[in-house]
């Protein structure tokens, strides 16, 4: 069961969850809940594929990142500046992104639900390791975004713990008033957190459409944005934790794809990630520790 192919497949399925979950950490650590990640992923998926179709995969990925960040900007303006309920704003972003993508898909490709086939980034093979038989599926012809995803983990941990930016970002999510009295620009930090989460969700979307499927298909995110949010909670708002949680989902999915038989209807196989998310949250949410001020709108000069 636990073959290298299986592991490789699990990793491929885990990557979008991991990238988005890491993005969610930036947003939540700054105190903003981002329920709109799903919509930002959808925007990334379509924009990535559409731009890649005309201008190649590199441009596609950049465009996807920009598209995710654009919707994140809307979320930031609404929830940081106007202090509207972050969940309401996130839900609106999801609806909006879905509508905009269908509208654009119809207008550009005359198809609401798919784009044409696109080229992916050149696959990477690690020369030495690829010769080892058992490792071969893991290290040969792999999407470079997979490596990027795993680099994001230590990088984010480093940013959070060792940089001025990380310290200030976390302080804003824990106690914004304390941060502001010390001269930290609370709004700026929150904007950064939300925009980074949107950019990464966009990147994750690009991975799905450009790297994984090589085309955009409507509904391809299948709630991955929410699953990523759950993975972040499961991972206790830590990048490494989010990675393990993401791998768990990838593994469960890879496993379930392999047990499709006559006995188990495919609809039930497809339910696995959703049920798993609920089970994991039910088992772990009480043990995790969220940033103290997450979800609470902050009014600048509230001290006054």
């Amino acid at each position: 069961m636990l073959s290298a192919e299986m592991l490789a497949s699990a990793i491929r399925l885990a990557v979008p969850v991991i990238i988005t979950a890491v993005g969610a950490i930036y947003s939540e650590r700054s105190g903003v809940i981002n329920i709109g990640l799903e919509g930002m992923m959808i925007a990334g998926c379509f924009t990535g594929a559409a731009v890649a179709f005309y201008a190649g995969p590199y441009a596609g990925i950049l465009a996807a990142v920009a598209a995710g960040a654009f919707f994140a900007l809307i979320h930031a303006v609404a929830s940081v500046h106007f202090r509207v309920d972050q969940i309401v704003s996130g839900v609106a972003i999801n609806i909006l992104a879905y509508g905009v993508v269908r509208f654009s898909s119809l207008s550009i490709f005359k198809m609401a639900t798919t784009t044409p086939h696109v080229d992916c980034l050149p696959k990477v093979t690690i020369p030495g390791l690829a010769a080892v038989p058992w490792l071969e599926p893991l290290v040969s012809k792999v999407s470079p975004l997979i490596f990027l995803a795993f680099l994001l983990i230590p990088f984010t941990a480093w940013v959070m713990n060792r940089t001025v930016f990380g310290l200030r970002l976390r302080s804003v999510g824990e106690h914004p008033l304390a941060a502001e009295t010390l001269g930290v620009n609370v709004y700026l930090m929150k904007y950064c957190g939300v925009l980074i989460s949107g950019a990464l969700a966009g990147l994750s979307g690009a991975y799905l459409s450009i790297e994984h499927t090589q085309m955009y298909v409507e509904g391809m995110t299948q709630g991955l944005g929410f699953i990523a949010l759950a993975a972040m909670i499961f991972g206790n708002w830590m990048p490494l934790g989010a990675m393990w949680a993401g791998l768990l989902f990838g593994f469960a999915q890879a496993l379930s794809l392999r047990v499709v038989t006559e006995a188990v209807p495919y609809q039930f196989i497809k339910m696995v990630p959703y049920i798993l998310t609920i089970v994991v949250l039910a088992g772990f949410v009480r043990r995790s520790r969220a940033p103290a001020a997450v979800g609470v709108p902050y009014e600048r000069g509230e001290a006054a």
Partner: peptide
């Protein structure tokens, strides 16, 4: 595209709360 309706929905939610 009738998705204009979906876009309007999202926008109305956002604008009304703002």
């Amino acid at each position: 595209p009738m998705e204009t309706y979906v876009i309007l929905q999202g926008l109305i939610i956002l604008t009304i709360v703002v």
